[in-house]
Write a protein that binds this DNA or RNA. Structure first.
Lengths: 134, 134
DNA sequence: AGTATTCATCATATCATCATGATAAAACAC
DNA sequence: GTGTTTTATCATGATGATATGATGAATACT
């Protein structure tokens, strides 16, 4: 309900990289096999993360992907927000534009609580937090 | 990010019915026009809600749809769960099966907090709560 | 330079969601 | 019982997410 398949793939891949030696490059093929993710699809996802500087990529022999930041400095939000919206300010969940703190709908406060808890999770949980359990 | 288009349509329609006289039947055409929702698509959604006893439907002249329960007795969850999963127990958000209170992953507690807040919103907010603002 | 390795990218296929248009079936009015 | 109104349903199309297979381009090694 919350995360798209693409986002889950991205998170799994990043967690896999976090478990490797820092600075070591991992090939797409390895990750695709280990994580059971379609190879070319994963390649596209990783490329996307590389373009936004979450990962470094190098081609050719000894090439692959590696994390730029340390896992404990990498909040899940940085990865998730590449592939789906993780808005800081909750929208009116019925899609109204004019719903805000100053012009709230009747559900605004309830919704804000739930939405904020969700956002805080993505913001405050790091890749390292998840990687403890592989 | 949270609600599908279909779910939003369903909620809007139910809120519209909640604003009508109790017991009054409203036609699909009226709702589709007022809410700017595709007519036949809305019809299908409403039919689905009728089959699960959220709504009553009657055909022919003077027909239409109406709420079965009072808006203040109708939690959003009853509507939303028709069209998407609103699970009481949060899954491991990476899709692992074995993640639970007794076998938690490192993020379990954080995620549980966020996921529970979301579920409580759907469970504790009623249609009446939303309808105050139209 | 040549070759193997690896990421980058393109063309296409599949599937679910969202949506439209046409027709069937029920209920009411006369 | 005929016609009108309305929901019920079917056939089909459009779009985006997911996925596959083939090819291009960069790097390293000899």
């Amino acid at each position: 309900m919350i995360l798209s398949q693409t986002t889950v793939y991205a998170l799994k891949a990043v967690m896999y990289l976090a478990a490797a030696d820092p600075g070591e490059s991992i090939r797409v093929d390895d990750m695709a096999n280990k994580l059971d993710v379609p190879r070319n699809y994963l390649s596209k996802i990783l490329h996307s993360l590389a373009r936004s500087n979450i990962l470094d990529s190098t081609r050719g022999p000894k090439g692959g992907f590696r994390l730029v930041a340390r896992p404990e400095d990498l909040p899940l939000e940085d990865i998730v927000s590449q592939f789906q919206e993780v808005s800081e300010r909750p929208r009116c969940f019925l899609g109204r534009e004019e719903c805000s703190d100053s012009t709230p709908c009747a559900a605004h406060d309830h919704w804000k609580g739930a939405s904020t808890a969700m956002h805080r999770f993505f913001k405050e949980t790091t890749v390292a937090d998840l990687s403890h359990h592989g």
